[in-house]
Nucleic acid binder design. Structure first.
Lengths: 147, 147
DNA sequence: TCTTGACCTGGAGTCGGCTCCAAGTTATAC
DNA sequence: GTATAACTTGGAGCCGACTCCAGGTCAAGA
């Protein structure tokens, strides 16, 4: 079946996983706590162990996060990425196409901002007539934290 | 009560402003509170009034927000958004180009998600090889699918 | 005069997404 | 046999960005 199954008792510790995915240990546990990640397999001592697929899922989370998707909204995607014969779940299929459409619109919006910047830089000032974007003003984008 | 107070030219109320910008009244006041917007002009009764330029600035905020910029990071942009010859502020010019770069990266990320979705939809199922991202270079893995 | 409605202020509460902590367990190293 | 390190858990705290509220002012209308 999976790669991990060939090698019975191994897999990645949470620390290794954190290193490989760039997600902190705390955050990985947090994702499990809120059910974004399935409960991890445990060793005898209850330590979590992760497979290659688990890491892939985490990388997918990181990726989707960069597109401004909320943790909640990405649940269906994660469910899909495991097994998934997509054609068997027409609803999900539909949802994903819808989301793809949204992303394409987002790309278009961002491209307009880039154009706006290019214009302004050429003209030398940020005048009026800022970037007129598509009607829908309420869209969430990655809110970043620093520190 | 001067003529000017009744004159339509005098500016927009906060309510009108909210309607025209798509930003709620509360949020407009909040932006003023944290100093993102300058203290608004007031009428005799201390009600805020906004000019066309003020609205432009708010639209710029909305626009920058869409690109994932934090409120804090957009302060410098707003400080000179109206007039100002950009070339006189090389630092700012630099910042804007940097931000443009970020947006381009964001577009790339989004495009990767689109590709991921397309693959997924085409194949019905897709193993690893999700969207690998820029930045921290974790080496790409052999990206093999079993099966 | 009384009510309504648009506005004001300061401050508290909410929510998403972490981030940190204390106290406990287990494994290995010296 | 004790120190160290890597983990476990539940829960508290934090930050950004709102969002809501109580209590007050003012102007116009029935």
């Amino acid at each position: 079946m999976s790669l991990a199954d060939k090698n019975p008792v191994s897999g990645y510790s949470i620390k290794e996983t954190a290193e490989r995915t760039g997600i902190t240990e705390d955050t990985i546990r947090y994702y499990e706590k809120i059910g974004l990640l399935p409960r991890a397999q445990r060793k005898g001592n209850s330590h979590r162990i992760y497979s290659e697929q688990d890491l892939e899922m985490m990388k997918l989370i990181t990726c989707l996060k960069k597109t401004g998707m909320s943790l909640d909204d990405m649940r269906p995607f994660l469910n899909l990425s495991l097994d998934s014969d997509l054609s068997q779940y027409p609803e999900l299929h539909e949802m994903i196409l819808t989301h793809k459409q949204k992303i394409l619109e987002q790309i278009a919006s961002l491209q307009q901002v880039v154009d706006f910047i290019d214009n302004k830089v050429e003209q030398g000032s940020l005048g009026p007539q800022a970037c007129e974007l598509t009607g829908d003003t309420r869209r969430r984008m990655p809110a970043r934290s620093k520190r």
